[in-house]
Design a protein around this nucleic acid. Structure first.
Length: 318
DNA sequence: AAACATTCCCGCCACG
DNA sequence: TGCGTGGCGGGAATGT
């Protein structure tokens, strides 16, 4: 039986710790549990999480890292994470543990703590999409992968935001114990779909809309529900902009171009349709506004690095 | 696979 | 003059 050490601190993001904890604590074959979960913080005692939940935890300083341990470092929002980063004892413990334990992992902004302890140098890393740029700036040696849900860098794993910790934990269970147990767990937790590590962590459409000021936002929202019809011209019209200005606004506000934006929305929509029910490539292409399956295939390859067919196969498991 | 057609992008300039 | 906009046109990218 492995021990899972959930490393927490004052103000820790509740789901970052409870999500993975739930996965590990419920991983079992018949009556046999595979993990024993412990919550630990420097100093121990009682602390408050982000959602005002109070938890009682062990003193991390007194916990001796074991070769079979999995360590999970949770994340937090701005003030709490900064305090955690500054905690020398915490960093020291993590550095010592990293040399010993089976796996060192982080959820969300927990990656900042691992980074501050120097454990991510030269490693590919995932973190919350909002923190990607900052992580890359603060630690230039780290290869931040903004698209990953989680990253398996050998003994060190990092996951993106909040609920992605669950996906990572499931992947770890699958690695340790096997596919069956992981699948069973996913079903128990009523997960809609287990996500592979490389799937984009957020909806392109939502981000595009929130980043787009005034008339462009609603126009994008409209485009999303009319993908079978829109083209660049109608999008511009809808936004009340000329083609030229639409190009400029896309470049400036969304760091993309109109054609690429539409392709992204289309691919994203295709993915949700694919997840909902099987359909022919031709029909899917029409529904998403690609028109034909060749164009759709190319767009998929550009956006995701794999075609619709492979994408579908990959998700058939769930 | 290669030639042909279309669409897209962006520098440039004129306008208010 | 400064600032944002719209239209033009050609070369690049994409699609057929």
């Amino acid at each position: 039986m492995r021990r899972v050490v959930m490393v927490v601190f004052e103000g820790v993001q509740t789901l970052d710790m409870t999500g993975p904890a739930e996965v590990f604590a419920n991983a079992r074959s018949g009556e046999t549990h595979h993990y024993q979960v412990e919550f630990a913080a420097i100093g121990g005692g009682e602390l408050r999480t982000s959602s005002a939940l109070r938890i009682r935890c062990r003193d991390l300083s007194r916990l001796r890292p074991q070769p079979t341990d999995i360590v999970v470092v949770a994340g937090a929002d701005a003030p709490a994470i900064v305090n955690a980063l500054a905690d020398e004892k915490l960093r020291g413990w993590l550095q010592r543990a990293a040399k010993v334990v089976w796996r060192m992992t982080s959820v969300c902004s927990g990656a900042f703590i691992l980074a501050a302890a120097g454990l991510l140098d030269g490693k590919r890393t995932a973190t919350h999409w909002r923190g990607c740029e900052q992580l890359a700036r603060m630690f230039p040696n780290i290869q931040v992968d903004p698209n990953a849900i989680y990253v398996d860098a050998g003994r060190i794993w990092t996951s993106a935001g909040v609920t992605t910790g669950i996906d990572m934990a499931l992947a770890l269970v699958e690695r340790d114990v096997g596919r069956e147990v992981a699948d069973h767990l996913a079903a128990e937790l009523v997960l809609y779909m287990r996500r592979p590590g490389f799937q984009a962590q957020f909806s392109e459409a939502l981000v595009a809309q929130s980043a787009a000021p005034d008339a462009l936002g609603p126009a994008i929202a409209w485009a999303r529900t009319n993908l079978a019809r829109v083209d660049i011209e109608s999008l511009a019209h809808r936004a009340g902009l000329s083609l030229r200005t639409l190009h400029r606004r896309c470049a400036q506000d969304l760091k993309t171009t109109p054609a690429k934006l539409l392709d992204k929305l289309r691919v994203e929509y295709a993915r949700t349709l694919l997840a909902a029910a099987p359909r022919s490539a031709k029909q899917l292409a029409v529904e998403c506004g690609f028109g034909n399956s060749t164009r759709m295939k190319r767009a998929f390859e550009r956006e995701l690095g794999l075609g619709p067919r492979e994408y579908q196969l990959l998700h058939a498991q769930a």
